[in-house]
Write a protein that binds this DNA or RNA. Structure first.
Length: 569
RNA sequence: CGGGACGUGGCCCAGCUUGGUAGGGCACUUGACUGGGGGUCAAGGGGUCGCGGGUUCAAAUCCCGCCGUCCCGACCA
């Protein structure tokens, strides 16, 4: 490809609207352009990177025996109705009507559609099956952001496994975990495999692949000593044991004028936060519920959703709270409450001599024995861990890192095969409902993650395997016919050897060409100019390190092909 | 959906406070010079100042409404 004829609109200045490094550089280097919030056009260089990323994923998926499909993005609403997810997806799903008035949606994911094809599976002999595709997903994000990281329209590689039983499912899951580890390693994404919540997709054994980056939207709790790592919405920690006093035979009222917070109680009455019970009122699928945590522990919303199976939760409004409990936030408690569900965090188990609100404004109760005084309907892990708390596996202080979710694998169970009526006959002739797994990678988000990890202050530094081109031949002395002939020879030699090469044949000054080569992040540059040619050499520059080598013209093609082959292995 | 900011040629921005012929830089076109780190000079082309309404002799500028975009939060595979 000739730079003179490629559309690579590089910008001299950073785009004003871009914050994240990947966003800024992908726009500036001419890989992407925004059409509207959350929708990006990929330009020729962007398409080349996307193709290479997809090919790595495809090779590894095929490597575990997966078969590639291509399913429609536009889908009938009824199939989502049937799985029960039409309501669950809410406003995040794009919906439209066709000319006949039929309800149609744009797919956010393809469990239903793949499962609808699985009804043609007939025998246990066919299982397991691994089915995948690269297809656009549409999600009406409330807030698209950070370039390709959070968008409303994107390519996902999604795969689904169908197995006869749990043991088979486990093997399929492990096959995918292995494939994902190889994929991210080959893409140059230092992904951490972390325990996660499966969110509204439903499922268990959820593992996210997270690329540490300051542009990331998730927080991962990670142990620096062992391999424990979990999304903050799932992470736990080992808390030091707390010894409580015996307390009083029954709770006692404590007048607490102008105390509205945990801190007030600490400061004005000397009651440590970890000896208090924090009472939150949440509306869980419409049901007012008391949520109890230790005074110094924050609630992890997703844990509450997971523990209750809720579709939606929200904090209760002050007027709802007063109507239900007779007191305002600041003096709330669960002692004696039997008409509302009470769910409590595990860290409160066995605690005695605690302090909590009395459900009378400006009055608290001391000497509360949780088991004796509070009717708790459900115990669950609800608290959000904080940096520095001990790792649950080895006790080392946990660190919190920001990360981009680039992949997610989880087990789906038989939800979809049940509702869509998928069965195969077993060896004994009885019908068996296959069990499913689901495995996703966001392709453009992976590109953004690579860019976040592989750049410096002058541009992108793509790994060879996914770079828009492996090497660019930069003709510096445009007017020098001999130099031009050498550059063209080298370019043709590289192409003939199978290298993905570019030649910058534009009538531009050397500085412009150098800047563009660096900005776009082509891993190797061969500079051809009259000056070095006088000595019979050209200059080879490695983009990532800036390392320059003078190489005889006669050897450069073989040398660069060799380097690329080694990096591309 | 709450909070904040912004919207002026392809890109980055000034002008708005105090209303009076729409500007600069980059990019682009042509010519000359130049040629190993975004070069110089000269001459050009390109604008519904986000949209609609209002005030005014007169609106990029003031007022009202709407739309869009970005950031923080809520939310989120």
């Amino acid at each position: 490809m000739r730079w003179s004829q490629l559309h690579i609109p590089t910008l001299r200045a950073d785009p004003a609207e871009a914050e994240a490094a990947s966003h800024r550089l992908l726009v500036r280097a001419g890989f992407i352009r925004q059409l509207m919030a959350g929708h990006y056009s990929l330009l020729p260089l962007g398409v080349r990177v996307r193709t290479k990323v997809m090919n790595v994923i495809r090779e590894e998926m095929n490597g575990i025996g997966a078969q590639e499909f291509l399913l429609p993005s536009m889908q009938p609403a009824w199939i989502w109705e049937k799985s029960g997810r039409l309501a669950v997806m809410g406003e995040e799903m794009f919906r439209l009507k066709d000319r006949k008035g039929a309800d149609v949606v744009l797919g956010m994911t393809h469990e239903e559609i793949f499962t609808s094809l699985a009804v043609e599976l007939a025998s246990y002999r066919e299982l397991p099956q691994f089915w995948y595709q690269f297809q656009l997903k549409f999600r009406d994000e409330p807030r698209p952001k950070s370039g390709l990281i959070r968008v409303r329209e994107f390519t996902m590689k999604d795969s689904y496994s169908f197995d006869l039983d749990e043991a088979g499912q486990d093997a399929s899951f492990e096959a995918h975990r292995g494939a994902y580890e190889r994929i991210f390693a080959r893409l140059g994404i230092p992904a951490l495999a972390v325990e996660a919540s499966s969110g509204n997709m439903g499922g268990t054994d959820s593992i996210e692949f997270m690329c540490p980056s300051e542009a990331g939207e998730d927080l991962v709790a990670r142990c620096g000593n062992c391999d424990y790592a979990a999304n903050l919405e799932k992470a736990t920690s080992a808390l030091p044991p707390v010894t409580d006093g015996p307390g009083t035979p029954e709770p006692r009222q404590l007048p607490t004028p102008s105390v509205a917070t945990i801190d007030d109680l600490v400061n004005k009455h000397g009651i440590a936060a970890d000896r208090q019970v924090k009472t939150l009122v949440q509306v869980i699928d419409g049901q007012l519920t008391l949520v109890l945590l230790r005074g110094d522990h924050p609630l992890a919303d997703q844990k509450l959703i997971d523990a209750t199976g809720a579709a939606a939760i929200r904090p209760a409004q002050p007027d709802e709270i007063v109507a239900a409990l007779g007191a305002s936030p600041g003096s709330l408690g669960a002692v004696g409450v039997t008409d509302l569900p009470v769910i409590a965090d595990l860290a409160l188990q066995g605690r005695t001599d605690m302090t909590t609100g009395a459900n009378v404004d400006e009055v608290h109760l001391t000497g509360v024995d949780i088991a004796r005084d509070i009717t708790i309907g459900q115990w669950a892990d609800l608290r959000e861990v904080r940096a520095g708390e001990p790792c649950p596996s080895c006790g080392t202080p946990l660190e919190l890192v920001q990360a981009i979710e680039v992949g997610h694998i989880f087990k789906l169970g038989r939800k979809y095969t049940n509702v869509l009526g998928v069965t195969v006959l077993g060896p004994d002739g009885t019908a068996i409902v296959p069990i499913m797994g689901c495995y996703g990678i966001g392709v453009e988000r992976a590109i953004a993650a690579i860019a976040e990890v592989h750049h410096d202050d002058i541009g992108l530094t793509w790994p060879v395997r996914v770079a828009p081109a492996e090497v660019t031949v930069v003709l510096l002395s445009v007017k020098d016919g001999a130099a031009r002939a050498v550059a063209e020879d080298i370019y043709r030699g590289l192409l003939a050897g199978g290298a993905d090469a570019l030649i910058d044949d534009r009538d531009e000054r050397p500085g412009v060409k150098f800047r563009d080569a660096e900005l776009t992040g082509i891993p190797y540059r061969i500079s051809v100019g009259s000056r070095d040619l006088a000595d019979g050499v050209v200059e080879v520059t490695e983009r990532a390190t800036g390392e320059k080598t003078r190489v005889p013209v006669t050897e450069v093609v073989a040398l660069v092909r060799e380097i690329i082959a080694a990096k591309d292995a």
